[in-house]
């Protein structure tokens, strides 16, 4: 028993946790920012997929993974801008607009595969991936057990970790953070202070799009070397769960995402060891059951922003 545990709980398990969590962290941070500003965003899955596609396309076309990263982030931002326009300016129900974005993303990437590469399934491989730029941070990466997992990483994983710190700081210390917060809690009050709810929400959604685009780029040009249809495989929805489980706060959401990554990494590694003689389905179901248990136990006191999902117009107030 002890031997098994020792074989399971290795530094590599932590590394796997961080890798599995990275795209979820970025997408869940996008959810935090959008929802704190008052926009319910369920479109992360679709935005990620579009980001993944364009990251791979740009990186393949130009040969530069860095341009691919920018392309993925830009595609995520542009696609989100469309979502913002529907949800904020056209006063769509936010869930409706998000659902449309998800459906559209699947059709669009499948169709664009045909247009760009003349085939379906997997795109052309990029010459270099962002994984080639894996960098260890001196000293920090020598911390036993967790050092390599957090501080010997690839560019977008660092960006994911950075986004947590950045958003925690933005919410605590900056005018932008305050505006976003007010826009989600007391939109009318923000408006009377002379700041625009609409502009704040647009900013939040587009910044969220950048993060989803980065999450997509992680999947296609950092963790892999090409785009595969449907490669997000539900991560955008897991991010939605992480946002709620983490109580709409950057650090809580970061921990929730890590938890998802951890249970998934754990079950995969336990399968490989083959010490527990059970059907594979019982391993695979573990992350979902653990999530339900965690949500049941953890989020008793957290609540969503007061005005989240509610349409806003100056004449009509926050309803």
């Amino acid at each position: 028993m002890m031997e098994t545990l020792a074989a399971l709980f290795t530094p590599q398990l932590v590394e796997a946790t961080v890798r599995l969590a990275a795209p979820v962290i970025l997408a869940a941070m996008a959810a935090v920012v959008c929802e704190r500003s008052g926009v319910t965003n369920i479109a992360m899955e679709g935005i990620m997929l579009v980001g993944a596609f364009f990251a791979a396309l740009v990186a393949w076309y130009t040969g530069s993974p860095w341009l691919g990263l920018v392309g993925g982030a830009a595609a995520g931002a542009l696609y989100s801008l469309f979502f913002a326009w529907a949800a904020i300016s056209l006063h769509f129900n936010h869930v409706v607009a998000g659902a449309i974005m998800n459906i559209l993303a699947f059709g669009l990437t499948r169709y664009l595969m045909m247009v760009a590469y003349g085939r379906q399934g997997t795109s052309n491989a990029v010459a270099r991936t962002l994984h080639d730029y894996k960098t260890a941070i001196p000293v920090l990466s020598d911390i036993p057990f967790i050092g390599k997992a957090f501080f010997d990483q690839t560019p977008i994983v660092y960006l994911a970790l950075l986004s947590v710190v950045a958003w925690a700081w933005i919410f605590k210390r900056t005018r932008l953070g305050l505006s976003i917060e007010a826009s989600g809690e007391y939109p009318m009050a923000l408006e009377t202070m002379g700041r625009s709810v609409v502009k704040t929400r647009y900013t939040a959604v587009v910044l969220g799009g950048v993060m989803c685009g980065l999450a997509g780029a992680f999947l296609s040009i950092e963790n892999s070397n090409s785009f595969t249809e449907g490669m997000t495989d539900g991560r955008g929805f897991i991010a939605l769960a992480a946002n709620i489980a983490g109580g709409w706060r950057p650090v809580g959401v970061f921990l929730a995402s890590l938890f998802f990554g951890f249970v998934d990494a754990l079950q995969l590694r336990a399968q490989g060891l083959g010490v527990i003689d059970l059907p594979s389905e019982l391993f695979l179901v573990f992350p979902y059951v653990a999530t339900i248990a965690a949500v049941a136990g953890l989020v008793k006191r957290s609540r969503p922003p007061a005005a989240v999902g509610k349409d806003f117009s100056v004449e009509g107030g926050g309803d």
Binding site: A245, L284, T291, I292, V295
Partner: peptide
């Protein structure tokens, strides 16, 4: 039950239940 007792959001719980049921269905 979780929604009523602990306020756990139904989006998370029903979605996780759906994934869990699908995962177990081959058994």
């Amino acid at each position: 039950a979780l929604k009523v007792k602990t306020g756990a959001h139904e989006v998370v719980t029903t979605m996780m239940m759906a994934y869990a049921i699908r995962t177990l269905s081959p058994m």
